[in-house]
Design a protein around this nucleic acid. Structure first.
Lengths: 341, 341
DNA sequence: GTCATGATGTAAAACGTTTTTGCTAAGCTA
DNA sequence: TAGCTTAGCAAAAACGTTTTACATCATGAC
């Protein structure tokens, strides 16, 4: 099988009767070559089926043309969409995307970070966990443009882009209050995550702006098991509320499911609102009122920062979310006397 | 910033007072060096913070240590899980995963295939679309170990791994029939996809084995919009069935939603079954009866084939799915006289 | 006629590894 | 003592590009 070795640039050069450098220039167009020569080289390259070796190019150019993304769980529907949009964004720049899913394991997180470093990634997108090693990230960020997305790493001074979680939480509270709800419970997300904390705190603060208190509060991981458990828990513990604000759509859907099973109808007896606007929010029954994160813009901004790589002080980009009102939130039947008790 | 250039192996060699080759050998352990020398090299490398450049290593070793995965839509929950499991599997081999999401666009599919080829991937996993270019894939497969997953490309003679769609469909039919259903409709997936076709044909055949005919049949893309539309359509067109077998969980969930909105209760008036067992199947209300694909094993087998790369005739691996009975399927109220008409 | 200039091309260096080959000294056999 | 193996290390080739530094020649300005 010696004959089907891939042709290299020297094969092309030989066949075209010119030097390697001329071949390179003819192919890349970085320097002028005589049109006739150029045509000949191109033709020969085509005939031979020459394809430049990107690895060799990377070595000399010091550009791997690869960006890496590190995240705790790609099956989280928000992250899935984000990955898709990032991939689309970097692809238009001729870059590839290498993914690292740590599964919330800090050891694997460290391994991926090291791997990204060794592979000389051109940029890194990091969706941190609570355990993300600030020191390691900061060290790597000195050599590789790095932007942290969605959640903060405490102490991080580099680029950061995220949706305005606070604003989203406020929209949700305002929406429910305007519908007439006064007893609102909160099933917040993992309090170890800055995004979940921000939503939780903002919800609470906005409630108090309206002169209200959380009717009940609970926290949950963003996993299906825990979501179901905590949803059941909050419905059991306190029953005198007419609406639930969930930390994300997964939690909201869990609340809906558990409520139904308990004979509480949504939205009749209980309004439920989520966060993220994952694809299933629209499909679910009832369709979920939620806050839509501008995922595509987050992806676009993140890759933009990556490629511009100012090097100056950390830039913070906060993107505005949008309230999507669907069927899971309605006015309470009788605010003073909820039906499901 | 000249001082924080990354140290190379020659820096280490100089600092340790040995040759480059000795340094390389001491580091990699591929050839014996005197223990004392080895220790010195290791110590110096550590002090300097030396990290080998994987790109250079790739160039000489002709191994990119990267595998690529090409798929039509990563936001499809089945594929998301698959990607996660593949990533985990290749990571244990020290390999990275580069993703390509074609968004069902054949032009982008071709571009990705070319990019994977140029980057000298060590292996390729392909989840094809109806438009996947057999010629291109076959050509690339001559140089890069390639395995096609989940759906067939007609004419493909290489490695292939998939769940046994036929068996899954049969389980579903048997399950519904054993519950007492005799009028079963089918909302099949995209008929351009071999997997969806296989499920559809097997469902039909098994029904006929039981002496039954499809009460209604319809096809849908695996997108939310079309799913909703086709679900509504099939419920409108014919109402004399007591169960629906959907092409996947997304479609099943769409049927559930549309049915509820139309005042048809699931599973009271209508049983619904899906396929894939995506995470939401369990969370939904009612929890979805479905066929669980052995995603993790599919991922494991696919990467195994990739790395073993027999080179012989194409190997076919068919993995057995599992019936997961949940709440969305029950015995029909009155088989002869469905309640929802 | 000389000299700068621009167009075109080549040779060689560089990128950072791994691997092959060669060299030296020491140990062993006969 | 000659010959042979082996351990340990070094030198250099190789991987396939891009880029830099020259070389050549024609052109036009003065």
């Amino acid at each position: 099988m010696a004959e089907n070795k891939r042709p290299t640039i020297v094969d092309v050069a030989k066949a075209a009767g010119v030097s390697i450098s001329t071949t390179s220039n003819a192919l890349s167009g970085v320097r002028r070559v005589r049109p006739e020569t150029r045509r000949r080289v191109l033709k020969v390259a085509d005939q031979l089926g020459y394809e430049p070796n990107l690895i060799a190019r990377s070595l000399v150019g010091k550009r791997s043309s690869l960006v890496g993304i590190l995240m705790p769980d790609i099956t989280d529907n928000f992250l899935t969409t984000f990955v898709r949009d990032v991939e689309r964004a970097v692809a238009t720049q001729g870059l590839g995307l290498m993914i690292g899913d740590s599964g919330n394991d800090s050891q694997r997180e460290e391994r991926y970070l090291r791997a990204f470093h060794d592979r000389r990634m051109e940029g890194l997108l990091i969706i941190p966990t609570a355990a993300t090693d600030l020191g390691q990230v900061t060290a790597i960020a000195k050599e590789i443009p790095t932007v942290v997305v969605d959640r903060e790493i405490s102490g991080w001074t580099g680029d950061f882009v995220s949706c305005d979680h606070r604003a989203g939480a406020e929209m949700l509270v305002d929406h429910l209050v305007s519908l007439g709800h006064t007893r609102i419970a909160q099933l917040a997300g993992d309090k170890a995550l800055s995004s979940a904390r921000a939503r939780h705190a903002a919800t609470r603060a906005r409630l108090s702006d309206h002169g209200l208190l959380s009717a009940a509060e609970s926290f949950s991981q963003f996993t299906i098991e825990d979501a179901k458990e905590q949803a059941a828990e909050i419905l059991r513990r306190a029953a005198d509320f007419t609406a639930v604000i969930a930390g994300d759509d997964l939690l909201a859907l869990a609340v809906v499911g558990v409520a139904h099973r308990a004979g509480i109808s949504v939205p009749g007896d209980l309004s439920v609102a989520g966060f993220d606007d994952i694809p299933f929010a629209e499909l679910a029954w009832p369709a979920l009122t939620t806050i839509r994160q501008p995922v595509e813009r987050i992806a676009a901004e993140a890759t933009r920062l990556l490629l511009e790589s100012a090097g100056g002080p950390g830039r913070h980009v906060l993107l505005q979310p949008e309230l999507i009102v669907r069927d899971s939130t309605v006015a309470p039947r009788d605010p003073a006397n909820p039906a499901h008790t």
